[in-house]
Design a protein around this nucleic acid. Structure first.
Lengths: 195, 195
DNA sequence: TTCCAGATGTGATGTAGATCACGTGATGGC
DNA sequence: GCCATCACGTGATCTACATCACATCTGGAA
C-alpha cells in the first residue's frame, strides 16, 4: 500500500467520527509513521518499553498475554482500521506486559504516545476522536466480559464469527481458542456429533 | 452531603487529571444534578432509556445484567468518585440492557449525555478529562478480562479484595460471587479446609 | 523431493465449579 | 415480639471443559 492509500484509509476512518480540514489532517498525518511487518514478526514485546499505538492498514495482528504455564490468551485481534497496542503500558509508561505480533503480513501506521497527546492538545476534534474511539473499545470490552460470564464456548464462538466472519479464514483455530479462553481441543469438538 | 461538599469532591477528582479555572468548574458543575437514593433503589432499568451517567458521592452502587435464567452478573461496583451508567446504551442511544441500583443508601451527581457532550465541546480540558477517564476504564476492563481467562476463582477473589478492601465489609458475598462470575456456594467454599 | 513443524481431530481421564437440597442465624418491617 | 427474608454454610451429585496422548494432514523450507 502506498502513502496515498494509507492516508486515505486513515482519513476515511477519522471522518466517520469527526471533521478535520485538509490542513489539519495533513498535519496530524505527519505524526504517523508507516511500517511494514512480515507474518510472525513481533511489534510489541513483553518487558520492553512501548512507545506507540498502531493503526492497521492491512493484514491481521493479535495482542496477547502468555502466562507462567506458557498458555496464551488473546486480548484482541486487529484487522484493517483497528487500533492496537499495550494501552496499559502505553498510558502508564510502564514496560509492556502483553505482546503484539503479526498473524499475517501487515502494514501499520504508528503513532507515538507523545504525538497522540500533542495532536490531541492542539486540535480539539482529534481529542474528541480519541475519546470516541476509546469509548468504543470500552463498551466492546464490557460486552465481551459479560459474554464470558454468561455464555458457553459454543455461543461465544458463534458470536465471534458472526461479528468478524473474516477471522474464520485468516486465523487458525488454536488462536481462536486462545481468544475464547478455551483449549483448542474443546473448540475442535464443538461441532462433532455427540457419541 | 451538602452541595458544597459534593462540588469539592468532584472538583478534587477532576483536578487530579486536568486543570480548570474556577469559572469553568462552576460552569460545568451547573450541568450536574444532585440526587439521593435509598438502598435497593434502581437508578438505571433494563429496557428503559438511559439519559445520564452518575458520579458517586457516597454509598455503593452496582451495575449488573440478569440473564434469561435470572442469574445476575455484576459488571462494576461503584464507590465514591467512581462513574457509572449503562455506557453502551448511553452512547448509542439505545434502551438500557443492564441495570444500576444501590447496594447502600447513596448520593450521586448525574450528568446527561447531551450535557457531557456539550461541556466536552465547549471546554477542551473537559474533553481531555473524559478521554482520560474512559482510558482508565478500558484498561481496567482489559485487565479484568485477562484475569478472568487466566486465574481461578480464589485468585480473582483475593485480587478483588486487595484492590478494593472496602468492598469486603459493604457488599454481601452473593454479590461478590456475581462479580467474580461464580456461584455463591463455590465462593463460600473457598476457605473451608479440604476434607 | 524430502522432511519437519504447525494445524487439526479424537479418545481417555481428571477437575473446578455448577446445581440442588437443606440447615442455621441475623435483621428488619409491621 | 413475630415472622419473613436474606446471608451464609455445607453435603451430594453433575457437567463443561482441561489435560494428556496420539494420529493425520498440509505447506513451506532446505
Amino acid at each position: 500500500m502506498n502513502t496515498t492509500d494509507a492516508k486515505a484509509l486513515l482519513k476515511t476512518h477519522i471522518s466517520k467520527v469527526t471533521t478535520l480540514t485538509d490542513e489539519q489532517f495533513d498535519y496530524i498525518f505527519s505524526h504517523f509513521q508507516y511500517q511494514q511487518y512480515k507474518k510472525g514478526q513481533t511489534i510489541v514485546t513483553e518487558g520492553r518499553p512501548v512507545n506507540c499505538e498502531y493503526f492497521v492498514l492491512s493484514g491481521c495482528l493479535k495482542s496477547f498475554f502468555i502466562n507462567d504455564e506458557l498458555k496464551m490468551f488473546i486480548l484482541q485481534f486487529a484487522m484493517p482500521t483497528w487500533w492496537t497496542s499495550d494501552y496499559n503500558a502505553l498510558y502508564s509508561q510502564h514496560k509492556a506486559t502483553i505482546n503484539v505480533d503479526c498473524i499475517t503480513d501487515a502494514e501499520v501506521l504508528c503513532l507515538s504516545n507523545e504525538d497522540r497527546e500533542k495532536i490531541c492538545r492542539e486540535i480539539h476534534n482529534v481529542e474528541y476522536f480519541f475519546r470516541w474511539r476509546t469509548n468504543k473499545g470500552y463498551v466492546a470490552s464490557q460486552k465481551r466480559l459479560l459474554s464470558f460470564m454468561n455464555n458457553n464456548v459454543k455461543y461465544r464462538y458463534e458470536e465471534l464469527l458472526a461479528l468478524y466472519p473474516e477471522l474464520y479464514n485468516i486465523v487458525p483455530k488454536n488462536l481462536i481458542a486462545a481468544y475464547l479462553g478455551v483449549s483448542r481441543e474443546t473448540l475442535s469438538r464443538l461441532y462433532t456429533p455427540e457419541k
